[in-house]
Amino acid sequence: MTGKLESIANLEGHEDRVWSVAWSPNGFVLASCGGDKTIRIWGKEGDKWICKTILEDGHQRTIRSLGWSPCGTFLASASFDATTCIWDQKSGEFECNATLEGHENEVKSVNWSVSGSLLATCGRDKSVWIWEVQEDDEYECASVIHSHTQDVKKVVWHPTKEILASCSYDDTIKLYKEDEDDWSCCDTLEGHESTVWSISFDGSGDRIVSCSDDKTVRIWKSYPPGNQEGVVVSGKHSKWKCVCVLSGYHDRTIYDVHWSKVSGLIATASGDDCIRIFKEDTNSDRNQPSFQLVATQRKAHSMDVNSICWHPKDENILATCSDDGTVKLWRFTPAEE
């Protein structure tokens, strides 16, 4: 018996492929972006989801991804035009009040730290940038990290600490920490056999899920110095180990994965047009966890699914977007036990 996914809204308006969707922290609105160089803000009016605002003229090329500040006041957009724009509604309407420049070419991802005081970007130039948020809409580059050897696809902050994770075309995932005033890579997670497209922390921040062009999903766990399991840790930073590989479920590249902080469910978006939900077994051993596929939505979109995002408050609502130009909202109903 598996759970059920039903489509609850089909949001049309983008004029090209939609690359990314992001819920505001309170879940009241959803932002989407794509090849048409616009950002659309979707919200509920009565029972219906509608496009509230279209943000244009911020970028000259494709907008690849979005990130909300934890307070929900700011929205950052990463673009192939090599810049990151910061939008806010201080004037009552969304306006771009800061543009972060520095990357040599396409910016692929942007993400805010939990405190809202740091911002990370990454891109095709193989670098990861960390920006400090100053007063008066000023952003200062705190560090440029060249640890990856290829195109960096995504950056994601730890849910509670100032630890950053990134994944890359070089098939690895890397973790960064600030050490004596400078940021450096403290661990490299190897195992995927092709591009790692996306990563997501679980609610505790002790585990990461990753997805790849190698059609697998991997679960990684951190082992702090002095761990009871006896995992060897050199130095003072935790050692991350792959503890589970989910293979054989996806037919093509997996472009996104999101680990719900509310329900603990993992959702994937892939090039086979499907969305899938995985649930950890109740008695799962954390050092050797097992996950079950609890729902598959075939033909969720008519083309590749690019991004998937759990609602931050309502544990059964999901948003997806696709090359087919649409954004969709889904309700997940778990199977009865």
């Binding site: 492929r17 494709t62 690849r64 192939f80 692929k108 095709r124 696809k153 591009t195 062009d213």
Partner: peptide, 15 residues
């Protein structure tokens, strides 16, 4: 092959 299969890089190239 890896570059040709990466639709994000193909999309960027075609811009």
């Amino acid at each position: 092959n890896k570059q040709l299969a990466d639709k994000e890089r193909v999309a960027a190239a075609l811009e």
